[in-house]
Design a protein around this nucleic acid. Structure first.
Lengths: 260, 260
DNA sequence: TATTTCGGTTCATTATTTGAACCGTCGCTT
DNA sequence: AAGCGACGGTTCAAATAATGAACCGAAATA
Protein backbone atom coordinates (compact mmCIF):
# COMPACT_ATOMS: atom_id res chain seq x y z
CA UNK A 1 0.00 0.00 0.00
CA UNK A 2 1.17 3.53 -0.63
CA UNK A 3 2.30 5.74 2.20
CA UNK A 4 -0.75 7.95 1.70
CA UNK A 5 -3.04 4.97 1.96
CA UNK A 6 -1.36 3.88 5.15
CA UNK A 7 -1.64 7.33 6.67
CA UNK A 8 -5.32 7.60 5.80
CA UNK A 9 -5.92 4.14 7.23
CA UNK A 10 -4.26 5.32 10.42
CA UNK A 11 -6.51 8.38 10.45
CA UNK A 12 -9.47 6.08 10.03
CA UNK A 13 -8.28 3.96 12.95
CA UNK A 14 -8.01 7.03 15.17
CA UNK A 15 -11.55 7.98 14.19
CA UNK A 16 -12.89 4.57 15.15
CA UNK A 17 -11.30 4.47 18.57
CA UNK A 18 -13.22 5.99 21.42
CA UNK A 19 -11.85 9.16 22.90
CA UNK A 20 -8.19 10.06 22.67
CA UNK A 21 -5.60 7.39 21.98
CA UNK A 22 -1.91 7.01 22.66
CA UNK A 23 0.83 6.44 20.11
CA UNK A 24 1.49 2.83 21.01
CA UNK A 25 -2.17 1.88 20.82
CA UNK A 26 -2.57 3.53 17.43
CA UNK A 27 0.51 1.78 16.07
CA UNK A 28 -0.65 -1.58 17.37
CA UNK A 29 -4.12 -1.02 15.96
CA UNK A 30 -2.79 -0.34 12.45
CA UNK A 31 -0.02 -2.92 12.50
CA UNK A 32 2.52 -0.16 11.98
CA UNK A 33 5.80 0.46 13.63
CA UNK A 34 5.68 3.05 16.40
CA UNK A 35 8.16 5.29 14.60
CA UNK A 36 6.13 5.14 11.41
CA UNK A 37 2.88 5.82 13.21
CA UNK A 38 4.45 8.81 14.87
CA UNK A 39 5.72 10.27 11.59
CA UNK A 40 2.22 9.89 10.14
CA UNK A 41 0.63 11.51 13.16
CA UNK A 42 3.04 14.44 13.04
CA UNK A 43 2.27 14.93 9.37
CA UNK A 44 -1.48 14.64 9.89
CA UNK A 45 -1.25 17.05 12.79
CA UNK A 46 0.58 19.64 10.67
CA UNK A 47 -2.48 19.66 8.44
CA UNK A 48 -5.00 19.62 11.28
CA UNK A 49 -6.40 16.15 10.66
CA UNK A 50 -5.41 15.01 14.11
CA UNK A 51 -4.45 16.96 17.19
CA UNK A 52 -2.46 15.98 20.21
CA UNK A 53 -3.56 16.85 23.69
CA UNK A 54 -0.55 18.78 25.02
CA UNK A 55 -1.13 17.37 28.49
CA UNK A 56 -1.92 13.69 27.99
CA UNK A 57 0.02 13.45 24.69
CA UNK A 58 -2.83 11.41 23.29
CA UNK A 59 -4.24 11.96 19.82
CA UNK A 60 -7.72 12.73 18.49
CA UNK A 61 -9.38 13.85 15.26
CA UNK A 62 -8.52 17.47 14.49
CA UNK A 63 -10.37 20.45 13.10
CA UNK A 64 -9.39 20.25 9.42
CA UNK A 65 -12.13 17.79 8.44
CA UNK A 66 -14.72 20.27 9.73
CA UNK A 67 -13.65 22.79 7.13
CA UNK A 68 -13.64 20.19 4.32
CA UNK A 69 -17.00 18.85 5.40
CA UNK A 70 -18.48 22.34 5.40
CA UNK A 71 -17.15 22.93 1.90
CA UNK A 72 -18.63 19.68 0.71
CA UNK A 73 -21.93 20.42 2.39
CA UNK A 74 -22.02 23.84 0.78
CA UNK A 75 -21.74 22.24 -2.66
CA UNK A 76 -23.52 18.98 -1.98
CA UNK A 77 -25.84 19.58 1.00
CA UNK A 78 -26.87 16.00 1.64
CA UNK A 79 -26.70 16.13 5.42
CA UNK A 80 -28.39 19.48 5.85
CA UNK A 81 -31.12 18.62 3.35
CA UNK A 82 -31.86 15.33 5.04
CA UNK A 83 -31.64 16.57 8.64
CA UNK A 84 -35.20 17.93 8.97
CA UNK A 85 -36.62 14.73 7.48
CA UNK A 86 -34.62 12.64 9.92
CA UNK A 87 -35.98 14.68 12.80
CA UNK A 88 -39.50 14.43 11.45
CA UNK A 89 -39.28 10.66 11.12
CA UNK A 90 -37.84 10.37 14.62
CA UNK A 91 -40.75 12.33 16.03
CA UNK A 92 -43.33 10.46 14.01
CA UNK A 93 -41.94 7.06 14.92
CA UNK A 94 -40.75 7.75 18.44
CA UNK A 95 -37.68 5.63 17.63
CA UNK A 96 -34.03 6.33 16.90
CA UNK A 97 -33.48 7.39 13.28
CA UNK A 98 -30.11 7.56 11.58
CA UNK A 99 -28.77 8.73 8.26
CA UNK A 100 -25.83 7.19 6.44
CA UNK A 101 -23.65 8.20 3.52
CA UNK A 102 -21.82 5.96 1.10
CA UNK A 103 -18.19 6.92 0.63
CA UNK A 104 -14.99 4.99 -0.03
CA UNK A 105 -16.86 1.70 -0.25
CA UNK A 106 -18.43 2.06 3.18
CA UNK A 107 -21.67 3.19 4.66
CA UNK A 108 -21.02 5.65 7.50
CA UNK A 109 -23.47 7.07 10.00
CA UNK A 110 -23.42 10.84 9.73
CA UNK A 111 -26.54 11.85 11.67
CA UNK A 112 -28.49 10.30 14.53
CA UNK A 113 -31.74 11.52 16.00
CA UNK A 114 -32.38 9.71 19.26
CA UNK A 115 -35.70 8.34 20.33
CA UNK A 116 -37.08 10.18 23.37
CA UNK A 117 -37.85 6.83 25.06
CA UNK A 118 -35.78 5.52 27.92
CA UNK A 119 -35.46 2.12 26.26
CA UNK A 120 -34.01 3.14 22.95
CA UNK A 121 -31.43 2.06 20.43
CA UNK A 122 -28.11 3.88 20.51
CA UNK A 123 -26.25 4.49 17.26
CA UNK A 124 -22.94 6.34 17.23
CA UNK A 125 -22.25 9.10 14.75
CA UNK A 126 -19.32 8.00 12.63
CA UNK A 127 -19.95 4.29 13.01
CA UNK A 128 -19.47 2.20 9.89
CA UNK A 129 -22.42 -0.06 9.04
CA UNK A 130 -21.72 -3.60 7.82
CA UNK A 131 -23.66 -4.14 4.60
CA UNK A 132 -25.01 -7.59 5.30
CA UNK A 133 -25.99 -7.08 8.92
CA UNK A 134 -27.82 -3.76 9.06
CA UNK A 135 -31.05 -2.50 7.55
CA UNK A 136 -29.10 0.39 6.01
CA UNK A 137 -26.64 -1.98 4.41
CA UNK A 138 -29.36 -4.18 2.98
CA UNK A 139 -31.25 -1.18 1.62
CA UNK A 140 -28.05 -0.02 -0.05
CA UNK A 141 -27.14 -3.40 -1.52
CA UNK A 142 -30.64 -3.97 -2.85
CA UNK A 143 -30.31 -0.96 -5.12
CA UNK A 144 -26.59 -0.52 -5.81
CA UNK A 145 -24.64 -1.59 -8.88
CA UNK A 146 -23.86 -5.28 -9.47
CA UNK A 147 -20.17 -4.40 -9.16
CA UNK A 148 -20.59 -3.02 -5.66
CA UNK A 149 -22.76 -5.95 -4.62
CA UNK A 150 -20.19 -8.48 -5.76
CA UNK A 151 -17.48 -6.64 -3.87
CA UNK A 152 -19.44 -7.10 -0.66
CA UNK A 153 -20.35 -10.70 -1.36
CA UNK A 154 -16.77 -11.63 -2.18
CA UNK A 155 -15.73 -10.89 1.42
CA UNK A 156 -16.70 -13.27 4.24
CA UNK A 157 -19.92 -12.26 5.99
CA UNK A 158 -19.17 -11.88 9.67
CA UNK A 159 -21.73 -13.19 12.16
CA UNK A 160 -22.38 -10.45 14.73
CA UNK A 161 -25.27 -12.28 16.41
CA UNK A 162 -26.86 -15.69 15.98
CA UNK A 163 -29.39 -14.01 13.69
CA UNK A 164 -26.90 -12.47 11.28
CA UNK A 165 -27.45 -13.66 7.74
CA UNK A 166 -24.09 -15.06 6.67
CA UNK A 167 -24.99 -17.06 3.59
CA UNK A 168 -24.64 -15.27 0.27
CA UNK A 169 -27.70 -17.02 -1.09
CA UNK A 170 -29.92 -16.08 1.84
CA UNK A 171 -28.62 -12.56 1.49
CA UNK A 172 -29.50 -12.43 -2.20
CA UNK A 173 -33.09 -13.47 -1.56
CA UNK A 174 -33.33 -10.90 1.26
CA UNK A 175 -32.13 -8.26 -1.19
CA UNK A 176 -34.64 -9.32 -3.84
CA UNK A 177 -37.39 -8.96 -1.28
CA UNK A 178 -36.02 -5.58 -0.21
CA UNK A 179 -35.89 -4.35 -3.80
CA UNK A 180 -39.48 -5.43 -4.38
CA UNK A 181 -40.73 -3.81 -1.19
CA UNK A 182 -38.68 -0.59 -1.37
CA UNK A 183 -37.37 -0.87 2.18
CA UNK A 184 -35.23 -3.35 4.10
CA UNK A 185 -35.86 -5.03 7.42
CA UNK A 186 -33.04 -6.31 9.61
CA UNK A 187 -33.94 -8.61 12.48
CA UNK A 188 -31.21 -8.47 15.14
CA UNK A 189 -28.52 -8.82 12.50
CA UNK A 190 -25.93 -6.68 14.26
CA UNK A 191 -27.15 -6.39 17.83
CA UNK A 192 -29.51 -8.69 19.67
CA UNK A 193 -32.80 -7.10 20.65
CA UNK A 194 -32.71 -4.53 17.85
CA UNK A 195 -34.92 -4.50 14.79
CA UNK A 196 -34.49 -1.94 12.09
CA UNK A 197 -35.79 -0.86 8.71
CA UNK A 198 -34.17 1.34 6.10
CA UNK A 199 -34.57 2.77 2.63
CA UNK A 200 -32.06 4.05 0.08
CA UNK A 201 -31.72 7.69 -0.85
CA UNK A 202 -31.18 7.56 -4.58
CA UNK A 203 -29.47 9.86 -7.05
CA UNK A 204 -31.19 10.65 -10.35
CA UNK A 205 -29.22 7.81 -11.94
CA UNK A 206 -31.11 5.63 -9.43
CA UNK A 207 -27.96 4.55 -7.57
CA UNK A 208 -28.11 5.06 -3.80
CA UNK A 209 -25.90 7.69 -2.16
CA UNK A 210 -26.92 6.76 1.38
CA UNK A 211 -29.74 5.48 3.51
CA UNK A 212 -32.16 6.49 6.22
CA UNK A 213 -33.04 3.96 8.90
CA UNK A 214 -35.24 3.51 11.95
CA UNK A 215 -34.04 1.25 14.75
CA UNK A 216 -36.34 -0.02 17.48
CA UNK A 217 -35.99 -2.32 20.49
CA UNK A 218 -37.45 -5.74 19.84
CA UNK A 219 -40.18 -5.27 22.44
CA UNK A 220 -41.79 -2.40 20.54
CA UNK A 221 -41.40 -3.89 17.06
CA UNK A 222 -44.01 -6.43 16.07
CA UNK A 223 -44.40 -7.35 12.43
CA UNK A 224 -47.12 -4.83 11.66
CA UNK A 225 -45.20 -2.01 13.32
CA UNK A 226 -41.97 -2.71 11.48
CA UNK A 227 -43.68 -2.72 8.10
CA UNK A 228 -45.57 0.46 8.90
CA UNK A 229 -42.24 2.07 9.87
CA UNK A 230 -40.64 0.63 6.75
CA UNK A 231 -43.04 2.21 4.34
CA UNK A 232 -42.86 5.54 6.16
CA UNK A 233 -39.08 5.33 5.93
CA UNK A 234 -39.21 4.60 2.21
CA UNK A 235 -41.54 7.54 1.68
CA UNK A 236 -39.21 9.79 3.68
CA UNK A 237 -36.20 8.62 1.66
CA UNK A 238 -38.02 9.47 -1.53
CA UNK A 239 -38.85 12.94 -0.24
CA UNK A 240 -35.23 13.56 0.75
CA UNK A 241 -34.08 12.50 -2.68
CA UNK A 242 -36.56 14.77 -4.41
CA UNK A 243 -35.72 17.73 -2.24
CA UNK A 244 -32.00 17.20 -2.56
CA UNK A 245 -31.74 16.55 -6.26
CA UNK A 246 -34.29 19.23 -6.94
CA UNK A 247 -31.94 21.67 -5.18
CA UNK A 248 -28.94 20.24 -7.03
CA UNK A 249 -30.25 21.51 -10.35
CA UNK A 250 -30.03 25.12 -9.19
CA UNK A 251 -26.39 25.16 -8.00
CA UNK A 252 -23.68 27.07 -9.91
CA UNK A 253 -23.28 30.29 -7.98
CA UNK A 254 -20.06 32.23 -8.71
CA UNK A 255 -19.36 33.60 -5.23
CA UNK A 256 -16.76 36.10 -4.17
CA UNK A 257 -13.87 34.39 -2.46
CA UNK A 258 -13.06 36.84 0.23
CA UNK A 259 -14.38 39.36 2.63
CA UNK A 260 -12.98 40.56 5.88
CA UNK B 1 8.18 17.43 2.37
CA UNK B 2 6.83 13.98 3.06
CA UNK B 3 4.50 12.24 0.64
CA UNK B 4 1.67 12.52 3.13
CA UNK B 5 2.23 16.22 3.47
CA UNK B 6 2.19 16.64 -0.30
CA UNK B 7 -1.00 14.66 -0.62
CA UNK B 8 -2.73 16.68 2.09
CA UNK B 9 -1.53 19.88 0.46
CA UNK B 10 -3.08 18.66 -2.77
CA UNK B 11 -6.31 17.94 -0.92
CA UNK B 12 -6.20 21.44 0.46
CA UNK B 13 -5.69 22.83 -3.04
CA UNK B 14 -8.73 20.95 -4.31
CA UNK B 15 -10.74 22.37 -1.42
CA UNK B 16 -9.73 25.92 -2.28
CA UNK B 17 -10.62 25.71 -5.93
CA UNK B 18 -14.15 26.49 -6.91
CA UNK B 19 -16.26 23.63 -8.14
CA UNK B 20 -14.77 20.52 -9.67
CA UNK B 21 -11.24 20.60 -11.06
CA UNK B 22 -9.35 18.61 -13.65
CA UNK B 23 -6.14 16.66 -13.15
CA UNK B 24 -3.88 19.03 -15.04
CA UNK B 25 -5.16 22.06 -13.18
CA UNK B 26 -4.67 20.39 -9.81
CA UNK B 27 -1.13 19.32 -10.71
CA UNK B 28 -0.25 22.80 -11.93
CA UNK B 29 -1.76 24.37 -8.82
CA UNK B 30 0.36 22.22 -6.50
CA UNK B 31 3.54 22.28 -8.55
CA UNK B 32 3.38 18.50 -8.85
CA UNK B 33 3.89 16.26 -11.80
CA UNK B 34 0.68 15.09 -13.43
CA UNK B 35 1.50 11.45 -12.75
CA UNK B 36 2.18 12.18 -9.10
CA UNK B 37 -0.99 14.23 -8.71
CA UNK B 38 -2.98 11.43 -10.24
CA UNK B 39 -1.51 8.82 -7.87
CA UNK B 40 -2.38 11.04 -4.93
CA UNK B 41 -5.90 11.58 -6.21
CA UNK B 42 -6.47 7.86 -6.72
CA UNK B 43 -5.27 7.19 -3.19
CA UNK B 44 -7.38 9.98 -1.71
CA UNK B 45 -10.37 8.72 -3.67
CA UNK B 46 -9.97 5.21 -2.30
CA UNK B 47 -10.47 6.69 1.13
CA UNK B 48 -13.30 9.01 0.13
CA UNK B 49 -11.45 12.29 0.59
CA UNK B 50 -11.99 13.23 -3.02
CA UNK B 51 -14.38 11.89 -5.60
CA UNK B 52 -14.23 11.97 -9.34
CA UNK B 53 -17.25 12.83 -11.42
CA UNK B 54 -17.59 9.77 -13.67
CA UNK B 55 -18.78 11.95 -16.53
CA UNK B 56 -16.52 15.00 -16.52
CA UNK B 57 -13.59 13.17 -14.86
CA UNK B 58 -13.06 16.19 -12.69
CA UNK B 59 -12.35 15.96 -8.98
CA UNK B 60 -14.05 17.36 -5.91
CA UNK B 61 -13.98 16.93 -2.13
CA UNK B 62 -15.48 13.57 -1.14
CA UNK B 63 -17.71 12.34 1.64
CA UNK B 64 -15.10 11.03 4.09
CA UNK B 65 -14.46 14.38 5.79
CA UNK B 66 -18.17 14.56 6.63
CA UNK B 67 -17.89 11.48 8.77
CA UNK B 68 -14.72 12.71 10.49
CA UNK B 69 -16.24 16.11 11.07
CA UNK B 70 -19.32 14.55 12.64
CA UNK B 71 -17.13 12.50 14.94
CA UNK B 72 -15.19 15.55 15.97
CA UNK B 73 -18.35 17.55 16.49
CA UNK B 74 -19.80 14.76 18.62
CA UNK B 75 -16.81 14.99 20.94
CA UNK B 76 -16.00 18.66 20.59
CA UNK B 77 -19.22 20.42 19.49
CA UNK B 78 -17.77 23.82 18.72
CA UNK B 79 -19.75 24.45 15.54
CA UNK B 80 -23.08 23.21 16.83
CA UNK B 81 -22.69 25.08 20.13
CA UNK B 82 -21.83 28.32 18.39
CA UNK B 83 -24.40 28.08 15.58
CA UNK B 84 -27.42 29.50 17.49
CA UNK B 85 -25.32 32.40 18.74
CA UNK B 86 -24.14 33.17 15.23
CA UNK B 87 -27.74 33.19 14.02
CA UNK B 88 -28.77 35.38 16.93
CA UNK B 89 -26.02 37.89 16.24
CA UNK B 90 -26.89 37.93 12.54
CA UNK B 91 -30.50 38.72 13.35
CA UNK B 92 -29.62 41.32 15.94
CA UNK B 93 -27.12 43.07 13.69
CA UNK B 94 -28.77 42.56 10.33
CA UNK B 95 -25.29 41.90 8.92
CA UNK B 96 -23.36 38.85 7.74
CA UNK B 97 -21.86 36.93 10.67
CA UNK B 98 -19.23 34.22 10.35
CA UNK B 99 -17.54 31.78 12.65
CA UNK B 100 -13.96 30.57 12.25
CA UNK B 101 -11.92 27.77 13.74
CA UNK B 102 -8.18 27.67 14.26
CA UNK B 103 -6.58 24.47 12.96
CA UNK B 104 -3.24 23.63 11.38
CA UNK B 105 -2.00 27.18 11.82
CA UNK B 106 -4.87 28.70 9.89
CA UNK B 107 -8.16 30.35 10.64
CA UNK B 108 -10.90 28.76 8.52
CA UNK B 109 -14.47 29.89 8.06
CA UNK B 110 -16.77 27.08 9.12
CA UNK B 111 -20.15 28.82 9.36
CA UNK B 112 -21.69 31.84 7.70
CA UNK B 113 -25.05 33.40 8.47
CA UNK B 114 -25.92 35.86 5.73
CA UNK B 115 -27.40 39.26 6.26
CA UNK B 116 -30.95 39.51 4.90
CA UNK B 117 -30.07 42.79 3.18
CA UNK B 118 -29.62 43.04 -0.55
CA UNK B 119 -26.37 44.93 -0.11
CA UNK B 120 -24.47 42.49 2.06
CA UNK B 121 -21.04 41.02 2.52
CA UNK B 122 -20.46 37.56 1.12
CA UNK B 123 -18.13 35.18 2.94
CA UNK B 124 -17.50 31.66 1.67
CA UNK B 125 -17.63 28.69 3.96
CA UNK B 126 -14.20 27.08 3.92
CA UNK B 127 -12.31 30.26 3.11
CA UNK B 128 -9.05 30.78 4.95
CA UNK B 129 -8.73 34.14 6.69
CA UNK B 130 -5.40 35.98 6.54
CA UNK B 131 -4.40 36.92 10.07
CA UNK B 132 -3.25 40.45 9.44
CA UNK B 133 -6.03 41.53 7.08
CA UNK B 134 -9.27 40.38 8.68
CA UNK B 135 -11.06 41.23 11.90
CA UNK B 136 -11.08 37.53 12.79
CA UNK B 137 -7.35 37.28 12.28
CA UNK B 138 -6.65 40.34 14.39
CA UNK B 139 -8.92 39.10 17.17
CA UNK B 140 -7.06 35.81 17.13
CA UNK B 141 -3.58 37.35 17.10
CA UNK B 142 -4.42 39.74 19.92
CA UNK B 143 -5.02 36.84 22.29
CA UNK B 144 -2.91 33.94 21.01
CA UNK B 145 0.48 32.78 22.27
CA UNK B 146 3.60 34.80 21.53
CA UNK B 147 4.89 31.83 19.53
CA UNK B 148 1.93 31.87 17.17
CA UNK B 149 2.10 35.65 16.80
CA UNK B 150 5.76 35.55 15.84
CA UNK B 151 5.06 32.84 13.26
CA UNK B 152 2.61 35.16 11.55
CA UNK B 153 4.82 38.22 11.80
CA UNK B 154 7.81 36.35 10.39
CA UNK B 155 6.01 35.93 7.06
CA UNK B 156 5.57 38.89 4.72
CA UNK B 157 2.22 40.67 5.19
CA UNK B 158 0.44 40.71 1.85
CA UNK B 159 -1.42 43.88 0.85
CA UNK B 160 -4.91 42.90 -0.33
CA UNK B 161 -6.17 46.48 -0.59
CA UNK B 162 -4.58 49.88 -0.19
CA UNK B 163 -5.86 49.82 3.41
CA UNK B 164 -4.25 46.55 4.43
CA UNK B 165 -1.92 46.99 7.37
CA UNK B 166 1.40 45.56 6.19
CA UNK B 167 3.83 46.93 8.76
CA UNK B 168 4.58 44.68 11.69
CA UNK B 169 4.78 47.66 14.02
CA UNK B 170 1.43 49.08 12.98
CA UNK B 171 0.00 45.59 13.36
CA UNK B 172 1.39 45.27 16.89
CA UNK B 173 -0.23 48.50 18.01
CA UNK B 174 -3.52 47.43 16.41
CA UNK B 175 -3.30 44.20 18.37
CA UNK B 176 -2.59 46.02 21.62
CA UNK B 177 -5.67 48.13 21.04
CA UNK B 178 -7.70 45.02 20.22
CA UNK B 179 -6.55 43.25 23.37
CA UNK B 180 -7.50 46.25 25.49
CA UNK B 181 -10.94 46.58 23.89
CA UNK B 182 -11.81 42.88 23.67
CA UNK B 183 -12.76 43.03 20.00
CA UNK B 184 -10.98 43.83 16.74
CA UNK B 185 -11.96 46.18 13.95
CA UNK B 186 -10.76 45.77 10.40
CA UNK B 187 -11.24 48.65 7.99
CA UNK B 188 -11.24 47.35 4.41
CA UNK B 189 -8.18 45.25 5.09
CA UNK B 190 -9.07 42.39 2.75
CA UNK B 191 -11.80 43.80 0.53
CA UNK B 192 -12.56 47.40 -0.26
CA UNK B 193 -15.90 48.60 1.02
CA UNK B 194 -16.06 46.09 3.84
CA UNK B 195 -15.68 46.81 7.54
CA UNK B 196 -15.70 44.09 10.09
CA UNK B 197 -15.33 43.41 13.79
CA UNK B 198 -14.51 40.19 15.58
CA UNK B 199 -13.84 38.65 18.98
CA UNK B 200 -11.98 35.52 20.05
CA UNK B 201 -13.68 32.45 21.46
CA UNK B 202 -11.34 31.37 24.20
CA UNK B 203 -10.62 28.06 25.86
CA UNK B 204 -10.33 27.89 29.64
CA UNK B 205 -6.56 28.30 29.28
CA UNK B 206 -7.50 31.66 27.71
CA UNK B 207 -6.05 30.81 24.30
CA UNK B 208 -8.45 31.36 21.38
CA UNK B 209 -9.82 28.37 19.48
CA UNK B 210 -11.61 30.48 16.89
CA UNK B 211 -13.44 33.73 16.34
CA UNK B 212 -16.85 35.17 15.61
CA UNK B 213 -17.08 38.16 13.27
CA UNK B 214 -19.59 40.61 11.82
CA UNK B 215 -18.94 42.07 8.37
CA UNK B 216 -20.80 45.09 7.05
CA UNK B 217 -20.69 47.19 3.90
CA UNK B 218 -18.90 50.49 4.46
CA UNK B 219 -22.07 52.51 3.85
CA UNK B 220 -23.81 51.06 6.90
CA UNK B 221 -20.81 51.11 9.20
CA UNK B 222 -20.04 54.44 10.83
CA UNK B 223 -17.73 54.57 13.82
CA UNK B 224 -20.47 54.36 16.45
CA UNK B 225 -22.14 51.42 14.71
CA UNK B 226 -18.96 49.41 14.35
CA UNK B 227 -18.12 49.82 18.02
CA UNK B 228 -21.63 48.90 19.07
CA UNK B 229 -21.37 45.76 16.89
CA UNK B 230 -17.92 45.08 18.31
CA UNK B 231 -19.00 44.98 21.89
CA UNK B 232 -22.04 42.85 21.05
CA UNK B 233 -19.72 40.48 19.21
CA UNK B 234 -17.35 40.29 22.16
CA UNK B 235 -20.26 39.55 24.49
CA UNK B 236 -21.52 36.85 22.13
CA UNK B 237 -18.04 35.29 21.93
CA UNK B 238 -17.92 35.16 25.72
CA UNK B 239 -21.32 33.47 25.87
CA UNK B 240 -20.27 30.85 23.28
CA UNK B 241 -17.14 30.12 25.25
CA UNK B 242 -19.06 29.75 28.50
CA UNK B 243 -21.69 27.52 26.94
CA UNK B 244 -19.14 25.39 25.14
CA UNK B 245 -16.63 24.88 27.90
CA UNK B 246 -19.41 24.45 30.40
CA UNK B 247 -20.64 21.55 28.29
CA UNK B 248 -17.10 20.23 27.94
CA UNK B 249 -16.92 19.47 31.65
CA UNK B 250 -19.78 16.99 31.40
CA UNK B 251 -18.45 14.83 28.52
CA UNK B 252 -17.27 11.23 29.06
CA UNK B 253 -20.18 9.05 28.03
CA UNK B 254 -19.31 5.42 27.33
CA UNK B 255 -21.61 4.70 24.39
CA UNK B 256 -22.35 1.40 22.69
CA UNK B 257 -20.51 1.12 19.41
CA UNK B 258 -23.10 -0.56 17.29
CA UNK B 259 -26.75 -1.00 16.55
CA UNK B 260 -28.54 -2.08 13.39
C1' DT C 1 -8.66 17.58 -41.31
C1' DA C 2 -4.83 19.31 -38.35
C1' DT C 3 -3.67 20.75 -33.79
C1' DT C 4 -3.82 21.28 -29.05
C1' DT C 5 -5.27 19.86 -24.64
C1' DC C 6 -6.54 16.66 -21.48
C1' DG C 7 -6.79 12.36 -18.60
C1' DG C 8 -4.22 8.68 -17.90
C1' DT C 9 0.00 5.23 -18.04
C1' DT C 10 4.88 3.39 -18.10
C1' DC C 11 9.38 2.27 -16.13
C1' DA C 12 14.22 3.29 -15.15
C1' DT C 13 16.05 6.54 -11.83
C1' DT C 14 16.02 8.59 -7.42
C1' DA C 15 14.70 9.92 -2.96
C1' DT C 16 11.93 8.61 0.78
C1' DT C 17 10.12 5.47 4.04
C1' DT C 18 11.08 1.98 7.29
C1' DG C 19 11.90 -0.32 11.90
C1' DA C 20 15.11 -2.43 15.33
C1' DA C 21 17.40 -0.54 18.82
C1' DC C 22 17.74 3.13 21.64
C1' DC C 23 16.74 7.10 25.26
C1' DG C 24 14.50 9.43 29.01
C1' DT C 25 10.25 9.80 31.77
C1' DC C 26 6.30 8.51 34.17
C1' DG C 27 3.51 5.53 37.10
C1' DC C 28 3.19 1.42 39.52
C1' DT C 29 4.81 -2.33 42.52
C1' DT C 30 7.67 -4.24 45.63
C1' DA D 1 12.73 4.63 47.50
C1' DA D 2 14.48 1.44 44.36
C1' DG D 3 13.28 -1.40 40.59
C1' DC D 4 10.31 -2.48 36.87
C1' DG D 5 7.60 -1.96 32.86
C1' DA D 6 5.18 0.79 29.63
C1' DC D 7 4.98 4.82 27.21
C1' DG D 8 6.24 8.74 23.96
C1' DG D 9 9.67 9.85 21.18
C1' DT D 10 14.30 9.56 18.23
C1' DT D 11 18.11 7.60 15.23
C1' DC D 12 20.32 5.85 10.99
C1' DA D 13 21.60 2.10 7.75
C1' DA D 14 18.81 -0.89 4.84
C1' DA D 15 14.82 -1.51 2.08
C1' DT D 16 11.25 0.23 -0.46
C1' DA D 17 8.30 3.38 -2.51
C1' DA D 18 7.89 7.85 -5.03
C1' DT D 19 9.09 10.28 -9.13
C1' DG D 20 8.62 12.46 -13.86
C1' DA D 21 9.90 12.58 -18.88
C1' DA D 22 8.01 10.48 -22.49
C1' DC D 23 4.22 8.36 -24.24
C1' DC D 24 -0.89 6.98 -25.57
C1' DG D 25 -5.58 7.64 -27.11
C1' DA D 26 -9.60 10.53 -26.91
C1' DA D 27 -11.86 14.66 -27.25
C1' DA D 28 -12.24 19.34 -27.72
C1' DT D 29 -10.66 23.27 -30.79
C1' DA D 30 -9.28 25.52 -34.89
Amino acid sequence: MSTIGKALTLLDAVSRLEKDVGLTEIARHCGLDKATARRFLVELEKHGFVEQDPETRRYRIGGAPVRLARIREARFPYLSTAAPFVRELAEASGETVHLSEYAAGRLSTILVEDSPRANRVIVDVGSVLPFHATASGLAFLAFCSARQLEDVLSAPLEAFTENTVTSANDLRSLLAETARRGYSVCLQGLESGVISTAAPIKAPNSLPIGTIAVAAPLVRADEATIHRLGSTTAATAKRISEKFFGLEQLAAQPLARRAG
